[in-house]
């Protein structure tokens, strides 16, 4: 799964309106335009629906069956019992907990770190700005699996250098086995995720920073507001939309974390995430029914998170889209 997810356009509130057709022959023109619109956008829409809507419908259908891939003859309809099994299983809730933990920790740290990076880039000398921009993009562009291997090898007790470099820290020594228990494993996983995706957040926030009107900043400065006051009263409120959009997308992305877990721990020490659990039921255990139920629940969780963000926190995607 990609951790470098889609960037939503962060609202250019004043985006130019589409060129309006002249008001003559409105019905004919509108009809023609409607037809052309669907003709042009239709293929892309059809492809998107085909590669996602059909499989998720199939997954939902499969989740109603007791179905093992190697034993297709004994496939039988069991209704919602797969869901009952999943939802009453402590492992499912543990995975949800781990996933939420990773999500909350990484997104929180990324937001703070990304904001700092954005501030630096926003204010940095013109001369070093292109350099910073290029450098910051590199983690974003690196393949997640490669990043996971790099961090794993760095912390590995045999191949890594972390133990010898940080031996002066209490609790770290030549014998520290980072992947030996839950806490340290999750720590390394989060570190890898944060390294890789903070640049993405910082770029979105940088775009948000650019939207804060200079006039307001200057006015506040004239009024004698401290840096922190200006930040809290002027900068952050004015880039709320950008922050929320960045949060929404990173949260959804973090919730689907798979690659890093697969590479670094393979689920050892209770580090299974929901995506990993789904993978193990369907691909390793070959229990298509049970695995599909986990998949559908994962899908519903993602929808729920998106819904909470959009309705609860009032993330204005239409503004983000620029067509308000």
């Amino acid at each position: 799964m990609s951790t470098s997810t889609t960037a939503p356009p962060t609202g250019r509130t004043g985006a130019s309106a589409p060129a309006q057709a002249p008001k003559k022959h409105i019905s004919d023109r509108a009809k023609a335009e409607r037809k052309l619109g669907w003709l042009l956008a239709g293929p892309a829409l059809a492809v998107m629906l085909l590669v996602t809507a059909y499989p998720i419908a199939q997954a939902f259908y499969d989740s109603l069956f007791d179905y093992r891939l190697t034993d297709p003859e004994n496939r039988s309809f069991t209704g919602l019992s797969n869901y009952l099994v999943v939802l009453t299983d402590q492992l499912w809730w543990q995975s949800v907990g781990v996933t939420l933990l990773i999500t909350v920790v990484t997104v929180a740290v990324e937001l703070v770190l990304g904001f700092g990076l954005a501030l630096v880039m926003n204010k940095a000398l013109k001369a070093i700005r292109p350099f910073l921009r290029a450098v910051i993009l590199i983690p974003y562009a690196v393949i997640t699996v490669v990043s996971a291997f790099a961090w794993q090898f760095a912390f590995d007790i045999n191949t890594g250098f972390i133990n010898s470099w940080f031996a002066w820290l209490p609790g770290v020594g030549a014998d520290t086995d980072w992947f030996g228990d839950f806490g340290t494993s999750i720590f390394v996983v989060c570190l890898a995720e944060i390294w890789k995706t903070t640049p993405f957040i910082s770029l979105l926030l940088l775009a948000g920073l650019a939207q804060v009107p200079e006039v307001l900043q200057e006015a506040a400065q004239v009024d004698g507001a401290t840096w922190w006051q200006r930040m809290r009263r002027v900068t952050i409120p004015n880039m709320k939309a950008a922050i929320m959009v960045a949060l929404l997308f990173r949260t959804l992305d973090a919730f689907r974390v798979f690659d890093s877990i697969f590479v670094m721990t393979a689920g050892a020490n209770g580090t299974e995430t929901v995506s990993f659990l789904a993978y193990r039921q369907t691909i390793s255990r070959l229990e298509i029914g049970l695995g599909s139920a986990v998949s559908v629940l994962l899908f519903l969780s993602v929808v729920l998170i998106a819904f909470v963000f959009i309705k609860g926190f009032k993330v204005d995607l239409s503004q983000a889209r620029g067509d308000s």
Binding site: P18, L45, V51, T52, I56, S275, S292, S295, V302
Partner: peptide, 29 residues
Amino acid sequence: RLDFPGKKFILGTALGVAIFPVISIVTPL
């Protein structure tokens, strides 16, 4: 550029697909 109903639906679908958990559709695919 064009004004046609369904624009929002297309953008909404794109958003939905973007947040889709890949792992959920791998087995059916």
